[in-house]
Structures are given as structure tokens and as C-alpha cells.
Simulated scan of single mutants.
Amino acid sequence: MDLNSLLSGSIGQQIIGSVASKIGVDESQAKTAVTSAVPMLLSALNKNAQNGNAEGIANALEKHDGSILDNLSGFLGQGGNQQDGQGILGHILGDKQQNVESAISQQSGLSTNQVTQVLAMVAPIVMGFLGKEKQAQGADSSGIQGLLGNLLGGATSGEGINLGGFEKMLDQDGDGKLGASDVMGMLGGFFKK
């Protein structure tokens, strides 16, 4: 399954509907925010994997095994798990989280506070979806990068934010490249748990 299939399928519709009702916006704004947030999170994970942290991501996916998708309506009905979502975001995006929130805010017309809520709702679902795909494909740490690459293969159809621009936001040391020092800054100890 690629990213477009996830976002346009029943899971995507559930997420968008729940986001719209939780933060009190119309579904078109919620859709713009979600279809921007999901590729950003997957792109950040993909860059982390490319830069040598695939094993750490694989370990994190043992916790996020896809079971969240078995009761997605229950998870969303409770407004998600903001604490878990914020933890995931802090580790994946690090000090670039505000830049990401601003970019999605500009794209969707939502306030940055609303975008923070959207990202925190979506992050555990993205990890759960990735965990389920990992299990379905029997991927180990060496297969994580390929799995993420396949999911992101559908991310270039025009919806959402240009991933190249997103990768510039993640350049934590300002050297114009997304390298190991950027990744370490983003990850902290998250994937070592």
C-alpha cells in the first residue's frame, strides 16, 4: 500500500472526519492538514532510516505494532492519545516541530495550536500503520528503508507539501544536507527504547 491509498481509503476518511470534529474545522481544512502531516512524518522517518537508524525504527515499531488500527474508531473517538503523539513528534521532528507546524498551518489555514493537535493525533496512527506493514511484509531493520520508500512512492501526486522543502526544515545544523547530526538531533533517545 502506498501513501495515497492510505490517505484516500477508509482509514484516511476516518482520520479526517475525527480531526475535523475534534478541533472544530470543516473537513476540507482537516483533509489538507492530514494529507500534509502524514507524508511529513513518513518522510522524516525515511530520512532517519536512510541515515543509519533503521534498526532503531524497527525496534520502535515493536511497540507500535498496528494494533491501534484494530480499534481506530475507539482511538479517534477519545481524541487520540495526545501524550503518545507528542512524544513521537518530539523525537521524530525535534526542534523543527514548530517549522513543520507553521508550514501545515499556512497550507491548511489552521492555527499552529490546531496543527499541533492534528499531528499528535496522526503520529501514533502513522507509526501503527507502519508497524502493521512491517509485520505484513516480514521486514526487519534492513527492510525498513524500502518499506518507507514504497509508502512515500505515492507522495508526489500534488496533495500535501513538497517533501524537498520539508527536508530543508529538518536540516538541523543548517549545512544544507540532512545528515547524521540532523537525524541524531531529531531522534534523541526515542528509537532506543
Rank of each mutant, 00 (worst) to 15 (best):
V183A: 13
N113Y: 00
G143K: 05
A180W: 11
S8E: 12
G143I: 09
L152A: 09
S108R: 06
Q82W: 00
A120G: 01
S28V: 10
G149M: 12
K193G: 15
A139V: 12
S18T: 01
V122W: 01
G56W: 06
G165T: 11
V19P: 04
I11L: 13
L76C: 05
A139G: 06
I68V: 14
Q172N: 14
S108G: 08
L89A: 11
H64F: 15
G56N: 07
V122P: 02
N51E: 15
G164F: 02
N59H: 13
D84T: 13
S73I: 12
S181Q: 15
A103F: 02
Q97T: 14
S10A: 15
E159R: 14
S181G: 12
L163M: 07
G154W: 06
Q82H: 11
F75G: 00
L61N: 09
A60F: 13
A123T: 08
H91N: 14
A58H: 14
M121E: 02
G66A: 09
G188Y: 10
S157H: 11
V115F: 01
Q145G: 15
E133A: 14
G146K: 11
E55T: 13
Q107G: 01
D171K: 06
A44W: 10
P39N: 03
K134A: 05
G154L: 05
F166S: 03
G9E: 08
D26K: 08
L151W: 08
G79L: 00
